[in-house]
Simulated scan of single mutants.
Amino acid sequence: MRAIPSSLDPFVVSEVDRRLIAASADHDVRIPWAIESGSRAWGFPSPDSDYDCRFIFVRRREHYLTLWPARDVIETALDKTFDVNGWDLAKTVRLITKGNATAIEWLRSPIVYTGEIAFRDALLALANDVVERGSIARHYLHVARQQQVGAATLKRFFYVLRPAVALRWLADHPQESVPPMDLPALLAESSVPRSVTEAAMELIAAKAVTRELGAGTPPVILTQFVTNELDRAERFESLAPERDPAVVRSLADSFFRTQVG
């Protein structure tokens, strides 16, 4: 599977591809999933946004049967354009079972450099079976609250708005635990008022042509929406777990064994 929008720089995409091939060869791993994260995948890039490629890698079975395991992260050289790194499957599965929304979001990215659909779908199915909705909601709530601390900028506001809309999406989909990754999809799939959606899309359009939005005041309609959603989501702080930890661990182990067998 590959899904590369025309808006991405072909030279940069080629370099990302090269780094993925090199990482696979240098570390003797399989990379069944490699996507774009960050503002480009979240749906609100700036002209100078860097490229944040994230990937999941799987080692050969014998590499997991050692007293001296290798690092569970692979990193490539970081610069102003490229940020390419990945997580071992074991690390990814453990984080998913703990309700880490970042690991789950990688599976919903609209930008895919390379991917095995069966692997993605199986890992998504596992996430739906083991993730606590409360953990996902708390993740987005805490991310938004953290971004509200410090100097307020329009750029930072996007990092508050997206989690707020994700919380609305979770409220609108009570049987699901894995929201879309990008802001436009979150808006389209939730009950956000049309006026809020229009204001958000206007702000996205402004960011797309501005290298640095800088300090500024977001539209009142958006700040009020964020305040309401975050306040409403406080209920998730005391939400008790619903999953049996033993069942969660068993499902996670079973999935992991199928991938390294």
Rank of each mutant, 00 (worst) to 15 (best):
residue 219 P to D: 07
residue 222 L to F: 15
residue 177 S to T: 12
residue 209 V to D: 00
residue 175 Q to W: 13
residue 224 Q to M: 11
residue 202 E to G: 02
residue 176 E to A: 12
residue 197 T to N: 00
residue 208 A to E: 13
residue 178 V to S: 08
residue 216 G to H: 10
residue 182 D to Y: 09
residue 209 V to W: 03
residue 192 V to Q: 00
residue 216 G to D: 13
residue 175 Q to F: 14
residue 200 A to G: 12
residue 176 E to I: 10
residue 180 P to W: 03
residue 210 T to I: 08
residue 181 M to F: 10
residue 211 R to F: 12
residue 225 F to N: 03
residue 199 A to P: 09
residue 175 Q to L: 13
residue 191 S to A: 15
residue 216 G to F: 15
residue 217 T to H: 14
residue 200 A to I: 14
residue 214 G to V: 03
residue 219 P to K: 03
residue 211 R to W: 04
residue 183 L to H: 09
residue 177 S to F: 14
residue 177 S to M: 05
residue 204 I to A: 03
residue 202 E to W: 06
residue 183 L to I: 10
residue 201 M to C: 07
residue 209 V to K: 05
residue 193 P to Y: 05
residue 195 S to L: 06
residue 178 V to L: 13
residue 200 A to P: 10
residue 192 V to E: 01
residue 227 T to M: 09
residue 185 A to P: 06
residue 206 A to M: 14
residue 213 L to E: 04
residue 192 V to Y: 01
residue 211 R to H: 06
residue 195 S to I: 05
residue 193 P to Q: 01
residue 194 R to C: 00
residue 197 T to A: 05
residue 196 V to A: 04
residue 181 M to N: 02
residue 182 D to M: 06
residue 210 T to V: 06
residue 185 A to Q: 14
residue 189 E to L: 10
residue 205 A to I: 06
residue 206 A to P: 01
residue 201 M to H: 07
residue 177 S to L: 01
residue 210 T to Y: 05
residue 196 V to N: 03
residue 189 E to N: 00
residue 208 A to T: 13
residue 219 P to W: 09
residue 198 E to C: 01
residue 177 S to K: 02
residue 213 L to A: 00
residue 195 S to R: 02
residue 193 P to H: 06
residue 207 K to F: 13
residue 188 A to V: 11
residue 174 P to G: 07
residue 222 L to A: 08
residue 227 T to G: 08
residue 205 A to P: 03
residue 199 A to T: 06
residue 207 K to A: 09
residue 174 P to A: 12
residue 186 L to F: 08
residue 187 L to T: 11
residue 191 S to F: 05
residue 179 P to I: 02
residue 206 A to Q: 15
residue 193 P to T: 00
residue 221 I to W: 04
residue 189 E to G: 03
residue 183 L to P: 05
residue 218 P to K: 14
residue 221 I to R: 01
residue 222 L to N: 08
residue 212 E to V: 01
residue 175 Q to C: 05
residue 219 P to Y: 08
residue 184 P to H: 07
residue 180 P to K: 00
residue 197 T to R: 02
residue 192 V to N: 00
residue 223 T to C: 14
residue 218 P to W: 12
residue 228 N to V: 10
residue 196 V to Q: 02
residue 214 G to D: 09
residue 226 V to S: 08
residue 216 G to P: 10
residue 181 M to L: 15
residue 193 P to L: 05
residue 181 M to P: 01
residue 214 G to E: 11
residue 201 M to K: 13
residue 195 S to E: 12
residue 180 P to C: 03
residue 221 I to M: 04
residue 187 L to N: 03
residue 220 V to Y: 13
residue 209 V to R: 06
residue 204 I to V: 15
residue 201 M to Y: 04
residue 186 L to I: 11
residue 185 A to L: 14
residue 182 D to T: 00
residue 198 E to T: 07
residue 174 P to E: 14
residue 193 P to C: 06
residue 198 E to Q: 10
residue 222 L to H: 12
residue 209 V to M: 02
residue 212 E to W: 04
residue 207 K to S: 09
residue 211 R to I: 10
residue 206 A to L: 15
residue 212 E to Y: 05
residue 206 A to R: 15
residue 205 A to S: 10
residue 196 V to W: 04
residue 182 D to W: 09
residue 200 A to Q: 11
residue 200 A to C: 15
residue 174 P to R: 06
residue 207 K to D: 11
residue 192 V to D: 00
residue 213 L to M: 15
residue 225 F to R: 07
residue 221 I to F: 04
residue 202 E to V: 07
residue 218 P to C: 07
residue 222 L to E: 05
residue 206 A to N: 06
